[in-house]
Computed example of a mutant assay.
Amino acid sequence: MELHDLVRLTTGVALLTCVLAVVGVHVYASGRAQRAALIDRLSHTGTVPGGGRRRRFSDLDRRLRRTALGRKLELRLAATGLDVTPGEFFVYMLAAVAALWLIGQATLAPFFGPLAGLLGIWASVQFLNWQRQKRIERFINQLPELARILANATQAGLALRTAIGMAAEELEAPAGEELAKVADQLAIGHSMDDALGELAERLPSRELVVLVTTLVLSNRAGGQVVGALRNLTETLEERKETRREVRTQLSQVTMTSYAVPVLGIGALFLMNGVKDGALERMTGSPVGQACVVIAFALYAVGFVLIRRMSRIDV
């Protein structure tokens, strides 16, 4: 009898342990899923309720964000305004590198495969820089209207925080999106200096720095913010026209900087087309490989020098 009771007690304890284990695993899994969903919402990588698209490579994206490279890439993507996560961009970049590697190796010579892969990485970085600069230019063009809205709102007696939220609703992207981020940061307790400082770091420009400095000083020490914003509006309008004229004058030089490396790559295809296998024989020796590397380096130096010489800060 005592042995039978001991067996029943042991069986009951084992069943209870199994039930608790199942409940514990379920709670752990649901908690981990909620944590992942919260991270996705905070980092704008999840599916937006009621719309949006499903994000790809979410596991890779979470692992990449924990690294220094992933954090830098996330900041760069945030500045471009692209609806792409760091994980997605990283996978797309690797796919482009692999495709260029295979194309360069198949169409030219095996030696050009790694060079084409490096070209893919450079092109991806340049694409992000181009998108970021384009967004900065669009934001700069909206700064006069932004300063005008802030001046009218503060003249009507509204606080600067309220004026920023109003401007975020009235302005289109990218100014509306960036100001919405500033308003959200202010709503959760960030100071005006920190919120506007992060805005200036995301979209660096002299015009935005002047506007941010004016708002920060007016918020910190008080003063005639309305008059300062109205004067700043006129100045920004003049700088906007000046920047447009300078960009128009330098458009030919900009196209020349891109035409130089394109001509070099086109010459390689021309040589290989005139005499099939010429590039493979040329790169079959260390001297030929060194000459190709030096030629690519000179083209890169020419591209950088032309861009630097045509850069005029207004």
Rank of each mutant, 00 (worst) to 15 (best):
T233M: 10
K240N: 00
T214C: 07
V216D: 09
Q185R: 15
V262K: 01
L108A: 03
V260F: 10
V293E: 05
F296R: 03
G117R: 01
I39M: 04
Q126N: 05
S58D: 13
L60K: 00
G284K: 04
L298D: 05
D184L: 10
V27I: 13
S124K: 08
L60R: 00
G104A: 08
R8M: 12
Q142W: 10
V23Y: 02
I149Q: 04
G197N: 02
D40L: 14
R66N: 05
L73W: 00
P286C: 14
I265V: 13
T11C: 01
L215D: 02
V301E: 14
E2A: 09
V314I: 14
V84C: 09
M192Y: 00
L179H: 01
A123T: 06
G12C: 04
S257H: 11
L215A: 08
G273C: 08
D194N: 07
I136Q: 04
M192F: 13
S257F: 10
G120C: 10
V301K: 10
R56P: 01
I312E: 04
A14Q: 01
A98M: 05
L94D: 06
F57E: 00
S43Y: 10
R138Y: 05
V293K: 11
I140Y: 00
L150I: 05
A159D: 08
R230V: 12
G302Y: 08
K240F: 08
G87Q: 00
L75E: 06
E198D: 15
P49H: 07
A78V: 03
L211D: 12
R239K: 08
T235R: 09
V91A: 10
A300I: 02
V84A: 07
L211Q: 04
T47M: 09
E169G: 04
G51W: 03
A195Q: 06
V301A: 15
V91P: 01
N152W: 03
L298K: 07
Q142Y: 01
R243K: 11
E137G: 04
V23P: 00
F269D: 02
T235Q: 09
V13C: 15
V125G: 01
A29H: 05
L171T: 05
V209H: 06
M192D: 09
V293R: 10
L203C: 08
H4G: 02
M282G: 12
A37Y: 12
R55E: 11
V216E: 13
G227S: 14
R202M: 14
A297K: 08
R281Y: 03
A173D: 15
